[in-house]
Amino acid sequence: MTRQPRRIQRRRTPGWRLATATTNPLGAVIVSRPSRYGNPCKITLMQEMGYEDPHAAAAGNFRTWLAGNRSDAPTDEADQRRERILASLPSLRGKDLACTCPPGQACHGDELLRLANLPAAELTARVAVVRARVDRQRIAWGEEPMYAAVA
């Protein structure tokens, strides 16, 4: 019986090791802010904007951004970062994810866990929808599409 992957809290205290924080036989991956999977939306920005729950606001912003919404970050860099995350979601399948957010608090890692553990066909279809959405927005804003049109 396989255990359900979970989000664990990454600690920055001396002696803390990711390998000992998980009992998952597939291991764990760090998804905190400086990692390749980090949330580009800063919690401090959400605090400055006056959100009551800045963690939930940042996690919600990440979910929207990862789904292909370019309104908050309409740049090539942001699109490329989203693509790197989308392309590597299958490598997260079955693994625990470690972020500095405390358990029980909203975190972008929860969205990564959800997407990475979708059935493979569903994940592939969802990623294709996101890519098409990004290209439609890029074209509407007079930019070159990121993805080649599939005939």
Results as ranks from 00 to 15, higher is better:
69 N>K: 11
68 G>Q: 09
131 R>W: 09
94 G>I: 01
48 E>R: 08
79 D>F: 00
127 V>M: 02
139 I>L: 15
51 Y>M: 01
73 A>P: 01
141 W>M: 15
144 E>N: 08
121 A>M: 10
130 V>E: 07
82 R>Y: 06
119 P>G: 08
57 A>R: 14
130 V>I: 15
95 K>V: 03
117 N>L: 08
121 A>F: 04
72 D>S: 15
89 L>N: 06
120 A>P: 08
117 N>S: 10
88 S>V: 03
138 R>S: 07
52 E>Q: 14
86 L>Y: 09
65 W>F: 13
64 T>P: 00
96 D>H: 00
90 P>M: 10
90 P>R: 12
59 A>C: 02
121 A>N: 13
64 T>I: 13
79 D>H: 03
117 N>P: 07
117 N>V: 03
125 A>Y: 11
101 C>A: 11
97 L>H: 05
63 R>L: 11
93 R>E: 09
58 A>H: 04
86 L>F: 11
92 L>F: 06
114 R>V: 03
64 T>N: 14
88 S>C: 00
86 L>C: 04
78 A>F: 12
114 R>N: 10
51 Y>H: 13
86 L>E: 09
103 P>Y: 00
74 P>I: 09
49 M>H: 00
78 A>K: 05
70 R>M: 15
117 N>I: 06
128 A>W: 05
112 L>Q: 06
50 G>P: 05
88 S>E: 08
83 E>C: 03
135 D>P: 05
123 L>K: 01
107 C>H: 04
80 Q>L: 14
79 D>C: 13
132 A>D: 11
71 S>I: 11
135 D>R: 07
78 A>L: 06
120 A>V: 13
114 R>Q: 11
96 D>C: 01
108 H>W: 10
109 G>Y: 05
70 R>Q: 15
70 R>N: 15
55 H>T: 02
144 E>A: 13
112 L>Y: 05
92 L>C: 01
120 A>T: 12
55 H>A: 05
61 N>Q: 10
58 A>L: 01
91 S>Y: 12
89 L>H: 01
73 A>K: 14
47 Q>Y: 04
73 A>V: 04
57 A>G: 04
61 N>T: 09
83 E>I: 01
74 P>T: 07
98 A>W: 01
124 T>N: 12
144 E>L: 11
82 R>S: 05
